[in-house]
Design a protein around this nucleic acid. Structure first.
Lengths: 161, 161
DNA sequence: GACCTGAGTTCACTTGACGAACTTCCTCGC
DNA sequence: GCGAGGAAGTTCGTCAAGTGAACTCAGGTC
């Protein structure tokens, strides 16, 4: 046994996977279409029919994903009434939902780097104030900017006991 | 019609979803278990049996996910031979895989904020050099640090034509 | 030669995704 | 009042994907 011990590896015993935050987040937004629904939400889409049209997802799936996201407080249903129409609900991001923005930015950045053909990035993110392109970086609380994943050391927090 | 036009929304016509980088990235790492496999890879796990044990994923699914990630160049198979054992392969992150680190960090940060009970973050990321906790921020090329998603303006790049 | 272990593969079963058709509730034009 | 129309689902049959247990296979030990 002992096949799991490598130089630099986080000891398995000290690190309880069952409460991993990545797994927890994926339990909320990891199903098919969920993150794409959120992408559209960040781009301003709010109504069921619009999600359905731009995504092409099956209605039943879309209904389920929207309800799930509402249940988790990532979206909220807001009543609205267009003239000449009955009252309906639209789906808007909550603060909790807006906090998923970095995850979408990170996924998008990777796709831009590895999947976009010859620099043809489909969507660019710019600073609203100055118009310059933005990108994600890691900084530490001492103010250093990290150059990449290799500058990071994962430290398990052992629950009391 | 026209239900899809909102103040601040990115015009639908100008934005071709079919080549969205988020969707493209999810096509590579969006299946069940893929991102959890990568999380373990970042923590030092390399061998099939170890992935299987720490994740608890079905063997068949794990086989498929590892192969898919290798096919996409996110992991690579490296032969190794432990003493008293035959030659086997282990799975290591490539540069392309390491570049998915920000996505995992972002997902983890959200889970830490919204899912962890009373500040009991299961895993902390620290600067390898100075030991201070790290976090992700958005900066623009003019050097400003953005305060959140609301400071970002998405700009579709219309393909030539 | 019998046994062990890592890394799969196969199989029966359950869950989830899919597309098309159907339902409901409301508004509009007549 | 009455039928048409549309947004937002729901239902349904089918197909793909995930699951856990059992089986396979190669090379090593005893």
């Amino acid at each position: 046994m002992n096949s799991g011990r490598y130089a630099g590896a986080v000891s398995e015993a000290l690190w309880d996977r069952s409460r991993c935050s990545v797994a927890g987040t994926l339990a909320v937004v990891g199903e098919k279409w969920s993150l794409l629904v959120l992408r559209e939400a960040f781009l301003g889409v709010r109504r069921f029919a619009d999600f359905q049209r731009v995504l092409g997802a099956p209605r039943a799936v879309l209904t389920d994903r929207l309800n799930t996201l509402v249940d988790h407080g990532v979206l909220r249903r807001v009543p609205y009434q267009a003239e000449g129409e009955r009252q309906r609900y639209e789906y808007r991001l909550t603060e909790k939902g807006i906090d998923l923005h970095p995850a979408l930015v990170a996924l998008m950045a990777w796709g831009d780097k590895y999947l976009a053909g010859d620099g043809e990035v489909p969507l660019e993110l710019r600073h609203r104030d100055c118009g310059e392109p933005v990108h994600q970086v890691l900084v530490c609380e001492a103010g250093h900017q990290l150059s990449g994943a290799r500058d990071v050391r994962p430290v398990p927090r052992v629950p009391a006991g």
